[in-house]
Amino acid sequence: MNIVQEYAKSQCKAPENVPKFNIGDTVRVHFRIVEGEKERIQVFEGVVIARKNGESPTATFTVRRVAFGEGVERVFPLHSPRIAKVQVVREGRVRRAKLYYLRDRVGKAARVKARGRATS
C-alpha cells in the first residue's frame, strides 16, 4: 500500500462506524443538513442500486426512490461525516452488483424481492 492510499484510509470512518447494508436493500439514510446556525436531519428512503469505489474514502452509494411518480436518485459519500446513520428497512435479494435496470421499470416491475424477514 503506498503512502497516498495509507493516508486516504486514515481519512475513512472506522470499520465499525461504516454503515452496513447491501445492494438491493431498502434503506433510510439520515443525512445532516446545516442551514445557517441550525442543523437538522433529513431522511431519504429508497433502494440501494449501486456502491462505488469500494475501499477508498471516496466510496459512494446510490439510493433510488420513486417520488410522486418521478424517479429520484441520490449519491451519498459512504464516509461522509454528515451521514448520521443508515437504517436497513428491508433486505433485498438481488443477483447483480448494479441495479441500473430498475431505472427502466415502473410500478410493480420495479420491485426488489425481499430476503428473509424485514429488519429495522
Binding site: N2, I3, V4, Y7, A8, Q11, R32, V34, S56, P57, T58, P77, H79, S80, P81, R82
Partner: peptide, 21 residues
C-alpha cells in the same frame, strides 16, 4: 509529489488534496 486524493472537511464537504513528501 506523491499523489492526490479527496478528504472530508469538518462540515462534511469534500476537498481535493495533494500529498507531498
Amino acid at each position: 509529489k506523491l499523489g492526490m486524493t479527496r478528504v472530508f472537511t469538518e462540515d462534511g464537504r469534500w476537498i481535493p488534496v495533494t500529498l507531498l513528501q
